[in-house]
C-alpha cells in the first residue's frame, strides 16, 4: 500500500522551524509576563523580628488596607516571650521590592499608648501590589527589625 503521507526533508524543515518558533514564543511570553508577587510570601499581621527578639502586630484601621489614602495603624510590640514593650525607639521604612522604590510617605510612631501599643501615623500606599513595611526597633532588649508583607 502506498502511504498517503511521506515525510520528506521539506516536512522535516517545517517541523523543525515550527518547533523552534513555538519554543521561542514560550520564552518571550515568560520574559514579558507582568511581575506578580512571589507565591510564598507571609502576609501575617503578627511577625517575629528578624533576630527573634521581638514580636510585633500591625493593626490597620479596617480589614482591608486602602490605596491612596493617608492612614494610621496601631503597632503592638512585645518581647518574644510576650511582655509588652513600651520604651522603644521605632523607625519605619519600606517600599515595593519589585519596583525598586520606597514608601511614598515617611510614617512615624507618634505616641506610645501603653501595654506595648504604639500609634503609627502617616502611612500611605500609592499603588496596588506587594509592599513591605519594616519596623526598626531599638529598646532595652536590643536592636531588631520586623518586616511585614502587605498586599494591595
Amino acid at each position: 500500500m502506498r502511504p498517503f503521507f511521506r515525510f520528506t526533508p521539506r516536512h522535516r524543515a517545517i517541523v523543525a522551524r515550527t518547533s523552534a518558533a513555538v519554543v521561542l514564543i514560550g520564552v518571550i511570553a515568560g520574559c514579558t509576563a507582568f511581575a506578580q508577587a512571589p507565591n510564598n510570601l507571609d502576609y501575617s499581621r503578627t511577625r517575629l523580628s528578624e533576630a527573634g527578639i521581638y514580636r510585633g502586630t500591625i493593626r490597620p484601621a479596617g480589614d482591608s488596607i486602602p490605596q491612596g489614602r493617608m492612614q494610621s495603624w496601631m503597632f503592638h510590640l512585645e518581647s518574644a516571650s510576650g511582655a509588652p514593650v513600651d520604651s522603644a525607639t521605632v523607625t519605619i521604612d519600606g517600599g515595593m521590592p519589585q519596583h525598586g522604590h520606597g514608601l511614598p510617605t515617611k510614617p512615624q510612631v507618634t505616641r506610645a499608648l501603653g501595654n506595648g501599643d504604639h500609634l503609627v501615623e502617616g502611612i500611605k500606599f500609592n499603588m496596588g501590589g506587594w509592599w513591605v513595611v519594616k519596623f526598626h526597633v531599638s529598646a532595652a532588649a536590643g536592636n531588631d527589625s520586623l518586616v511585614f508583607n502587605i498586599s494591595l
Binding site: F5, F7, V15, A16, S19, V23, G26
Partner: peptide, 28 residues
C-alpha cells in the same frame, strides 16, 4: 508509518518535534 517517518528524523529534529508537540499540547 508515522513512527517510520519519525525514525528517519535526525536526533535533534526528533527532540525539536517532541518539544513542539509538548508545547503545542500545553498551548492547547
Amino acid at each position: 508509518m508515522y513512527i517510520f517517518a519519525f525514525m528517519r528524523l535526525r536526533p535533534w529534529q526528533r527532540v525539536a518535534f517532541l518539544a513542539g508537540i509538548v508545547l503545542g499540547s500545553l498551548a492547547l
